[in-house]
Simulated assay, not measured.
Amino acid sequence: MTPLKVVTFWVRPLDEEPLPEARARLEALLAVFYQAFPEYTGALAFSQSPRPPRYVFVYTNPSCAGLFPSAGQFLQGLLQQAFPQGEVRPYGRVWLETS
């Protein structure tokens, strides 16, 4: 996988079943993320579409240019654990390593 500077994660259900209400799950997930990456505290927000299939979005606020690859990979793993019935897709910019 190409390292990304992630700005948005999109979670969609894999089958016909919509995702469950996610507010409490996402609040707990972000608390774990902020413990591991305190430099991003307050930089993330989330939303869930009100109608089925109830997509979930986790995104950086305008003051944050994106998550560095290690933080993005960690958050993607948390989202995959929280939504095993969903597909987690990261969106952002390719991270170019500078020598």
Rank of each mutant, 00 (worst) to 15 (best):
C64Q: 14
P50M: 08
S99I: 10
R51N: 13
Q80T: 07
P50N: 07
N61E: 15
R89C: 08
L78M: 06
S99L: 15
V6E: 03
F37Y: 15
F68A: 10
G92D: 02
G72D: 00
P84R: 04
W10E: 12
F46Y: 13
R25Q: 13
F83M: 00
V6Y: 03
F9Y: 14
L4F: 05
E97H: 12
E97L: 14
Y59T: 10
Y34D: 05
L14K: 15
L19Q: 00
F9D: 02
D15W: 07
V88S: 03
A82M: 04
S70I: 07
C64H: 10
A45P: 03
G42P: 09
D15A: 14
L75G: 03
Q35M: 10
S99Y: 14
F57D: 07
N61T: 15
F68C: 07
E97S: 13
A36D: 12
P3A: 04
A28C: 09
R89H: 11
L78S: 05
P84C: 02
A28S: 15
R23S: 13
F37D: 03
R23I: 09
G66F: 06
L75D: 00
P62G: 07
Q80W: 04
L19E: 05
G77P: 06
F9N: 00
T41Y: 14
Q80F: 05
A71D: 00
Y59Q: 09
A45C: 08
L44A: 02
E16N: 14
G77Q: 04
L78V: 06
G72H: 00
L14V: 12
